[in-house]
Structures are given as structure tokens and as C-alpha cells.
């Protein structure tokens, strides 16, 4: 009888009880508290936004996502133009920042002599530390006046491509005024691009430098050129990190406020012509209007903010899952 019972136990997984020591308990407690706090903060921000946004969302219904106007007092408002504007600025930023970051990261990891490497890494960290309001100033007072002629040239010669079209420029007439080209999506996007370049560069540099020495040497040992090694070993290995870095940069670009606010002149209809004066983004609109809004206006702004919050969250999750699944994310 007893033998049978023992046999039965042997055939089943045994329960193992874990006894933790006090230091381990303490440490575990502190670490868990940190993790839980971060989750809690995110939850609080989301809930706060959702509660505050509820009146405006209730009032506008689904038209909130299709309306191209921002007039909460007239009960006529929606995020259609805002979202398109936000995404356009972010796309311009990413289009500029990703090639720049890739080249910089490759230069640092593959080509730069050691001293140059140290200097560049320092400069890029510095670039990340410059406050966005300074980028805004630089964009507004320096870049804009110099970029407007370039934009004018592009509009005149490539105006037939829809996004480069500017109203009042047909390619034959001389351009009447450069003010057509200031405060545009392009300029805002360029400045935001400068701001997200350091983040993307750092992440790419990190993954490129983790390429296993064995693979690198294998490629070189086969007579591979530097370019060949980059193409066959470094970039495939770094792919996950490149995508992840780009997504993180995109997330930041979507949320960038002050620099965009300083540069653009707001429009509330969908403005797909990136060279033309007039642009908008969710966060710059909030910065622009929150001080002078009544409670319903604030609720509308909260709703816009909530939309952006959710989109950014989604992008960041997508980014981290891509990075986690790639080889460069896991230290293999």
C-alpha cells in the first residue's frame, strides 16, 4: 500500500518550495516596486487622458477622426488634419534621420580611427542633450531662411510630384515670394530629424558593434571588401536594431512639440504638400491652445493627446517586439 503511494508520487512532478533569503527578498521588493511604478504611471497618464477626453469624444463621436477643423467652441473639431500633419512631419524627420544615422553609425563602427570614434560618440551624445527649444530657435532663425530657396527650387522643378507641389508655383513663372515656403512641414521635419538622429545613431551603433567577431573575420577571410562585409554581415545582423531604432525615432518625432510649435504656422485642413507654408501636429496644437481653452476645448485637446498617446504606444510596442525577435536584440 505504502509502496504504491510512493510510486504514484514518483510518477508525478514534485512540488518544489523556494525559500528566499532576506537580502534577496529586499532586493526583489525594490526592483519589483520600480517596475510596478512605471506601469502605474503609464496607466495613470492613459486613464487621466481618457477621462478628460471623454466629454469631447462623446460630443464628436466618430467624426472626431474624420473632421478637418479645430473649433471646439463651435463643436466642429477632429484630428484628421492633425494626425496627417503629425505623421508627415515625423516621416520627413525619419526619412532624413535614418540614412544619416545609418551612415554615421557605420562610419563610427567600421571606418573611424579610434580618436575620431571617441569624438563622434561624444558629439552625438551632445546632440541628444541639446534642448528641443534650441533646435526650434536654430530652425526658425537659421535654417528656415536658408532652406526656403532650396524648397522653392524643388517646387519649381519637381512640383509635378504631388507632395512637392506648392500652390502658386507652376514651374514656368518666377517665384514671387519665398514666404510661400517658410513654416512648412519640410522645415519642421528637418529640425525634428536632427533631433532624433542621435537616438537612432546610438542604437544602430550599439547593434553594429555587437556583430560577432567570428562572422566578421569569416567574411574578411573570404577576401571580402569592407563594403562586402557591411552588406553581408553587419547590416543583416543589425537589421533588428535598425528597425527598432527607426521606430523609436519615429515615436519621438511624433511627439516632438516645442521645435515644431516654433516653426510651423498652423493649418487645420489636410496639407499634403510638404514644401508649402503651413503645417500642424497634435502636440504643437496642444502647446498652442491649452492656455486659452475652456474646459470643453481642453477636453478636445485631451482627446487629441490620447490619440497620439495610443499611436506612440503602438509604435513603441511594435519596435520592441521587432528588436526582441531579431538576432541583434538577443545577444547571441
Amino acid at each position: 500500500m505504502t509502496e504504491g503511494a510512493v510510486e504514484e508520487q514518483v510518477d508525478q512532478p514534485r512540488k518544489i518550495k523556494l525559500v528566499r533569503d532576506l537580502p534577496d527578498k529586499l532586493f526583489r521588493g525594490v526592483a519589483s516596486a520600480g517596475g510596478v511604478t512605471v506601469l502605474l504611471i503609464m496607466l495613470l497618464v492613459g486613464t487621466f487622458l481618457a477621462i478628460k477626453a471623454a466629454p469631447a469624444l462623446h460630443q464628436a463621436g466618430f467624426s472626431f477622426f474624420t473632421t478637418q477643423a479645430w473649433n471646439p467652441d463651435g463643436r466642429h473639431f477632429g484630428v484628421a488634419a492633425l494626425l496627417v500633419g503629425t505623421v508627415l512631419i515625423a516621416l520627413v524627420a525619419v526619412t532624413i534621420a535614418v540614412p544619416l544615422s545609418t551612415a554615421t553609425a557605420l562610419y563610427i563602427t567600421e571606418y573611424a580611427p579610434r580618436r575620431m570614434k571617441t569624438i563622434l560618440i561624444g558629439v552625438i551624445d551632445l546632440m541628444a542633450a541639446i534642448p528641443s527649444v534650441v533646435y526650434g530657435l536654430w530652425g526658425f532663425f537659421f535654417l528656415e531662411s536658408r532652406l526656403a530657396p532650396v524648397a522653392a527650387w524643388i517646387a519649381q522643378h519637381f512640383g509635378w510630384i504631388p507632395i512637392f507641389k506648392v500652390k502658386g508655383v507652376d514651374g514656368h513663372q518666377p517665384i514671387s515670394s519665398l514666404t510661400l515656403f517658410t513654416s512648412s512641414t519640410l522645415i519642421a521635419g528637418l529640425v525634428v530629424g536632427m533631433m532624433i538622429t542621435p537616438v537612432i545613431t546610438s542604437i544602430m551603433r550599439e547593434v553594429f558593434s555587437q556583430v560577432p567577431v567570428g562572422e566578421r573575420e569569416a567574411a574578411l577571410g573570404l577576401g571580402g571588401t569592407k563594403a562586402g562585409v557591411i552588406r553581408t554581415v553587419v547590416l543583416p545582423f543589425g537589421k533588428g536594431g535598425m528597425i527598432g531604432g527607426t521606430m523609436l525615432g519615429l515615436g519621438r518625432a511624433l511627439g516632438e512639440t516645442i521645435a515644431v510649435y516654433m516653426i510651423i504656422s498652423p493649418v487645420f485642413t489636410i496639407q499634403p504638400h510638404i514644401l508649402q507654408s503651413g503645417a500642424i501636429s497634435v502636440s504643437s496644437l496642444i502647446a498652442l491652445q491649452f492656455a486659452e481653452s475652456n474646459s470643453f476645448g481642453l477636453s478636445a485637446l485631451m482627446a487629441a493627446g490620447l490619440t497620439l498617446f495610443l499611436i506612440t504606444l503602438l509604435i513603441n510596442f511594435a519596435a520592441s517586439s521587432v528588436v526582441a525577435r531579431s538576432r541583434s536584440g538577443a545577444s547571441s
Binding site: G214, E217, A218, G221, T232, P236, R327
Partner: peptide, 12 residues
């Protein structure tokens, strides 16, 4: 050509 101590085929 060279063959290394640790097998290093290109994993991707």
C-alpha cells in the same frame, strides 16, 4: 582561404 577555430557560417 581560412577556416577558423569556431565554426562561423553566416547564420542569416
Amino acid at each position: 582561404g581560412m577556416v577558423f577555430q569556431k565554426p562561423n557560417p553566416f547564420p542569416a
